[in-house]
Design a protein around this nucleic acid. Structure first.
Length: 439
DNA sequence: TCTGGGGTCCTAGGACCC
DNA sequence: TCTGGGGTCCTAGGACCC
């Protein structure tokens, strides 16, 4: 049973155990670390190419490509370059920057090394993304000493193991720990002792609160709320009337609490995925149906392959369509059973596309699988038989892909009319091989 | 400034059922 | 006859995060 812990003010936390027989208030004070790697992608690139060190580096792609900055070195940031900025804009601001595509695999590898170090400090580690994590360090004093000492030890150990810098925030909620690590950057450690949260948060801009983006910030500004302190002083009812449920959550956050008034600080274990998706933006918009169908098939295959890899069946298949003017629609279809098969995803996305496309050039296509289940659900006999054949065929396809890479086998290229007879291992009765007059 | 790709969570409306 | 209310599922869109 998960214990939920309530707050009164910002300093004392009372536990309310969910077992009604023992309704005892327990004072619980946690010690949470938030570890955030500094300019992670750029720093990993520097490990492999030390000549990049100190220079303005932009990870994300070439400056003439459609795309945005994934990461910018501190030298590049001096010119105003930051992540999520269009590459073309970054180039205008800093033409002398070195633009690199990046190496996803390397980042995953180094993220793994960081995780190993974290695990050696606490069994309760939650990777929040590829380059940041929460640790529950509650009760670790005997092993690692007081929080600051433990944090510095951890900081050093990560540097030793990976030769990368990170910043660490220490506090008794995830929220404050995260804001802390942000303030500690670069390469710093910051500890907010219990009781000092309000003083720490008050002068910071509302934008520093995770979850407050451009829109919420603007809206808060329109009420004259600029700093977290302003927010903390407001009546909760005012925030609720303006922002609904989110307003209540904001009121809690302004006081350093993790979720809507509840101290929801448990460091979880890697939750299961809720969706799997792939999308693609064309270098140039296209209205060529054959190109679009080939892309849809390719994206569907990528999604299906990952569904099989992770043992999931998706009940909801969603298509995403973005036009030249950036207007975007999503259209979904929920099946009566879960699927992880290429053809079913291809069929569904194709239907969704033809039922909803307005004929204008397409900028982006996406395929999204949701309502993930571990069982595929009920199927009638005919369907079952059909699916069995496909499953066998696809497991062969997956094996080939594992061996020779994703591009070695593709139903997508078959549909595009570029199918080359390279796939000797694929069963001859693979239904998709019948071209049904297409092409 | 001409806007990626992978996700999560929330809202709101409508269908449908009891 | 113009009328309830709750619950659940589905769909579409949007804010936000890294």
């Amino acid at each position: 049973m998960r214990s939920r812990v309530r707050t009164s003010g910002s300093e004392t936390f009372y536990g309310l155990w969910s077992d009604p027989a023992t309704m005892v208030d327990t004072a619980i004070m946690k010690t949470i670390f938030h570890v955030d790697m500094d300019a992670f992608f750029v720093s990993v690139e520097e490990l492999f190419d030390p000549s990049l060190k100190g220079k303005p580096v932009v990870v994300g792609g070439k400056p003439d490509q459609r795309g945005v900055v994934s990461a910018a070195s501190y030298a590049a940031r001096k010119y105003g370059v930051h992540s999520a900025m269009p590459l073309r804009t970054a180039y205008k601001l800093c033409p002398q920057a070195i633009f690199v595509e990046g190496h996803r695999g390397r980042y995953t590898e180094y993220s793994g090394y960081v995780f190993e170090v974290l695990r050696s400090f606490s069994p309760l580690v939650e990777m929040a993304s590829i380059d940041e994590a929460y640790l529950d360090m509650t009760g670790s004093e005997r092993l690692h000493g007081p929080p600051m000492m433990a944090a510095h030890k951890l900081h050093e150990r990560i540097k030793q193991r990976t030769n990368l810098n990170c910043s660490i925030g220490v506090a008794c909620s995830r929220l404050v720990a995260k804001i802390c690590s942000d303030q500690a950057k670069p390469n710093g450690v910051l500890f907010i002792p219990p009781g000092a949260e309000a003083r720490f948060l008050a002068p910071l801009e509302v934008r520093r609160i995770p979850g407050v983006g451009k829109v919420t910030e603007k809206s808060l500004h329109s009420f004259g709320i600029r700093r977290i302190g302003d927010l903390a002083h407001l009546d909760e009812r005012f925030l609720e009337s303006k922002f609904g449920k989110w307003g209540l959550a904001l009121a809690g956050k302004a006081r350093g609490l993790d979720a809507g008034g509840w101290f929801d600080t448990d460091v979880g274990f890697g939750d299961e995925a809720k969706s799997i998706s792939h999308e693609h933006t064309y270098m140039e918009d296209t209205a060529d149906v054959r190109v679009i169908e080939a892309s849809l098939a390719k994206l569907s295959e990528m999604v299906a392959s990952r569904l099989r890899e992770s043992g999931f069946f998706a009940r909801t298949i969603q298509l995403k369509l973005r036009y030249t003017d950036f207007s975007t629609i999503t259209r979904a279809q929920t099946l009566d059973h879960g699927t992880q098969l290429d053809i079913e995803l291809i069929e569904q996305t194709r239907k969704l596309f033809h039922n909803n496309w307005n004929g204008r050039p397409v900028r982006l296509l996406g395929v999204h699988a949701g309502s993930l289940e571990h069982e595929e659900g009920q199927l009638n006999l005919l369907e079952t038989e059909k699916q069995e054949r496909w499953k066998k065929a696809l497991s062969a396809v997956d094996r080939i892909r594992d061996k020779f890479g994703t591009s070695s086998v593709s139903v997508a290229s078959a549909m595009k009319g570029e199918f080359v007879e390279r796939v000797h291992e694929t069963p001859a009765d693979l239904p998709g091989r019948k071209k049904k007059g297409r092409d």
